[in-house]
Simulated assay, not measured.
Amino acid sequence: PFRNRSVEENLDLFKRMKGGEFPDGAKVLRAKIDMASGNLNMRDPVLYRILRAHHHRTGDKWCIYPMYDFAHGQSDSIEKITHSICTLEFEDHRPLYDWIIEKLEIYHPQQIEFARLNLGHTLLSKRKLLQLVKEEHVSGWDDPRMPTISGMRRRGYTPESIRDFCERIGVAKANSTVEMALLEYCLREDLNKRATRVMVVLRPLKLTIINYPEGQIEELTAENNPEDPDSGTRKILFCRELYIEQEDFME
């Protein structure tokens, strides 16, 4: 009902919004585009709203804040972003992204949409992960159980394995779910090429070879990594008394 207001009246109301004259939610600033557009985002979208919220940088200086669609393109333009990579739900927002930048006559980045990564049985929502951190269900963002880069680093994932995983799944326009087994496979492939082989007995059971000479010790040579000839070799001692895993013993 207010699409035909004069520019002067709109500027006056916006100045009063900025000055804190109106309560939260009482007024909004909308762009005058096309109420008959087939794209709901182009039907006179809201650009600014009144919200008295404390900001982590500006404190309580502002009581009006821009909507995401209004700020998105300008932020990208100011930072000289060449390609703004978004998930598929922003595809319908791209016409508004372009419209605002064109009307402001500022540097124009290109918005591109792609399908988000979904890992099977894995929570990737930043909002829900933040809840886990705030409620102290985990020790922090680098908790080994968290699907974050820092968490995966603590869990033993190498940068090369994560890059290999990303190259294998590629970028797509269709939403899909990737199984965690593929990520684990990429890690095994990377570690297989570089990791030094060692042996460990977690639950030792002493074994005595009664027909082996007492006091005799043999040195056996083992490769540090069969996949990497340059990794060298190591000596393994063999004698009358050995230790095996308890589960490997049978009466």
Rank of each mutant, 00 (worst) to 15 (best):
D248T: 00
L104N: 06
A36C: 12
Q131D: 12
T208W: 10
G232H: 09
D69F: 05
I169G: 06
R145I: 08
K126V: 05
K173W: 09
I78L: 14
G120K: 04
T233I: 13
E189M: 08
L29E: 03
S77V: 04
N39L: 00
L191M: 13
R3G: 01
C186S: 05
E160F: 09
R52K: 12
E227T: 15
Y185W: 15
I217C: 08
R203P: 03
T177Y: 02
M199H: 11
L117G: 05
N211Y: 02
V138N: 01
H108I: 08
C63N: 10
L123W: 04
L29A: 10
R16P: 07
D44M: 06
K18S: 14
L205E: 15
H54M: 14
G38Y: 00
C63V: 09
Q74T: 14
C86H: 07
R52D: 13
L182K: 05
N4T: 08
T148C: 02
R188M: 10
P95R: 00
G232F: 09
E102W: 12
G73N: 00
V46E: 01
L123H: 01
F90V: 00
R94N: 14
G25R: 06
E21S: 08
I169S: 05
R168I: 07
G232M: 10
R52A: 12
L242I: 05
G120C: 03
I100W: 00
R16V: 15
Y97K: 01
K32C: 14
S176V: 07
L183S: 03
E218Q: 09
K193M: 14
S77T: 04
I64F: 02
